[in-house]
Design a protein around this nucleic acid. Structure first.
Lengths: 218, 218
DNA sequence: ACCACTAAATGAATGCCATTCATTTAGTGG
DNA sequence: CCACTAAATGAATGGCATTCATTTAGTGGT
């Protein structure tokens, strides 16, 4: 029996195209928002677009392609505006926090991004252009710009994972007596207060990187 | 027909146990070494141990469990010896390079490690104990030790991905004219020489972190 | 000596997944 | 008007982790 309200599409090319990359991207993001990355399957994506799974392959080559569309969309959300208006230190700081926050919600993309040729992701390339122009304007020696950005990005990606870690990740359980130094350090961090441990670590590392890199400027 | 040289095991519990965790770990590592993480399937693992796939589940609960065994084994390979014998700066430097090098070959484990409660991984916990003791002995304020280690680890994990990136990852292709600043920076890095870009970026970031954190010591 | 129980293997499903292919239909350029 | 291309369906395909019923071997208790 045909679906209740579903006016089944008949076989063959429809008069107006049903799918395009923007629609696929939006549907993927909706799906991820509702069910996480486990819920993002080609079948579920097709269902949410009221289309047969195989129809997706007229628009993307693979599931990895879908992840790439999502990645590029998200990168456009990273805030780079401070590079136009603020001193280098605070611009980097804002960019880094924003970048981490966006991808902390999307860690399954990190393995994809990390090895992604920038050619395949126009928004990502645009971000690099803005950031590297900011470094150049701040007096960075040209041959260090890319390395500094890569180092910051590595730190940001690693820190994004850290945000998703369970609160009790450092609970050493029954081994506590045999690891006194670590157990003590964990306890005294916990005693410190309510600020999120992932934020404390990110701030600590980011400020060290900013200070260290700032010294390279001419 | 029974396999050629294979003396098929008959159904039922064998006289001597065929499997244990150490054997499973070793086989998984062999498989990863030969075919990468794509080649590590429960079926392939079982085949390499001459066992039915379902037999594995008497010893591990899931594939994730297998990855955990591998992770803990690898962590034991990270070199922490310098913390016993060298000044803090060089000990951290050696540890960080070693840690990055080990996991650069095993990036698919990073999502697993990053959210892994330390209770489940004794070798990993042992590494933390040695490192935090080194920080403490170097005069680190106790409540910053964990944050500093987490920040370093985040940088290390992100940098491990970077090692695996394709050489032409920053080739902006046809968009080169619209991204002059970034394209110029990439070119002048390439002109610089033969040192691996991932190593340059890692060194740059690591030295900044060491310098920044060193200043926290009392 | 027996018996209940647990541990460790096999082999046959199960259900999900990404992807491919043959087929159908709709627009388009020459 | 005709060949071609684009975009949909629907039916495979093969691989995957995992589960379950079944069989057999050792073990601890009476």
């Amino acid at each position: 029996m045909p679906k209740t309200g579903a006016a089944r599409r008949r076989v063959g090319r429809p008069a107006a195209a049903v799918l395009d990359k923007a629609g696929i991207t939006a549907a993927a993001l909706r799906l991820i928002g509702k069910n996480g990355y486990d819920g993002l399957t080609m079948a579920a994506l097709a269902r949410s677009l009221q289309v047969a799974p195989s129809a997706l392959y007229n628009h993307v080559e693979s599931k990895r392609d879908v992840l790439l569309l999502v990645e590029d969309h998200l990168t456009a959300l990273v805030d780079v505006t401070a590079f136009a208006a603020e001193p280098w230190e605070s611009a980097v700081r804002k960019w880094a926090w924003s970048y981490r926050d966006v991808f902390a919600e999307h860690t399954p993309l990190i393995p994809v991004i990390a090895v992604l040729p920038v050619t395949d992701a126009p928004q990502t390339l645009a971000m690099y252009e803005t950031v590297s122009a900011g470094f150049r304007a701040a007096g960075f020696p040209e041959e260090r710009i890319v390395s500094a950005i890569v180092a910051l990005e590595s730190f940001i990606f690693g820190s994004a994972y850290d945000v998703t870690a369970p609160a009790d990740i450092f609970d050493s359980g029954s081994m506590a007596e045999s690891t006194p130094s670590f157990t003590g350090a964990v306890r005294s961090l916990a005693a410190l207060g309510h600020e999120k441990p992932a934020d404390v670590a990110f701030s600590l590392g980011l400020e060290a990187l900013i200070a260290g890199f700032g010294a390279l400027r001419e």
